[in-house]
Nucleic acid binder design. Sequence first.
DNA 1: TCCCCGATTAACT
DNA 2: GTTAATCGGGGAG
Length: 195
Amino acid sequence: MSARLPRSFYDRPAHEVAPDLLGRDLVRLEGSTVLRARIVETEAYDEGDPASHSHRGRTERNSSMFGPPGHLYVYLSYGIHWCANVVTGPVGNGSAVLIRGAVPLEGLAVMASRRGRGRARDLCSGPGKVCSSFAIEGSLDGMDLLRNDAGLRLEVGKTVALQAIRKGTRVGISRARDTLWRFSVDPERVTGSST
DNA sequence: TCCCCGATTAACT
DNA sequence: GTTAATCGGGGAG
């Protein structure tokens, strides 16, 4: 178990936090059970960004994005799937980083039972799947990652070398196609033995 | 008030 | 590779 990321980690622009989240561990403590997955894909969203929920200002749904850094922003996608974001920047700034993908490290059996299918590489390979495996849903919107709410936290994990990070266009959006705020890393580079 | 469509996933052909 | 499922947000009227 590594150290939890401090509040200051999140109090930066989303496009700086997003690549820095690669290799970090999403952890949920559920009694004696530990769920752990290492983040391998993220996307940044902020107020000046036409593709962001916060672009048209604060609403009831996106209010968490404007709250303190280090909290969670959870929303329902396509009426079916929950997606989890980490709120970044100071209070009043509507920015966050979407956790798009991770590699499961602990608690695989629990994740598989929640997902109804068992292949390890499919457990957290998408924003909706991460939430499904970790049982993250709307009631956790706005929770603080630094207060053990719901046993959820982010830990330091294994830092990824800057040159190993891939930048690209974000997935599933039609606006701001020229903003390269999707960050990912080869799963081997965060879980395999370092080279 | 109505209507369109999305920061997705899984089951198809 | 293609498409149905499914529903709330928010822009348009």
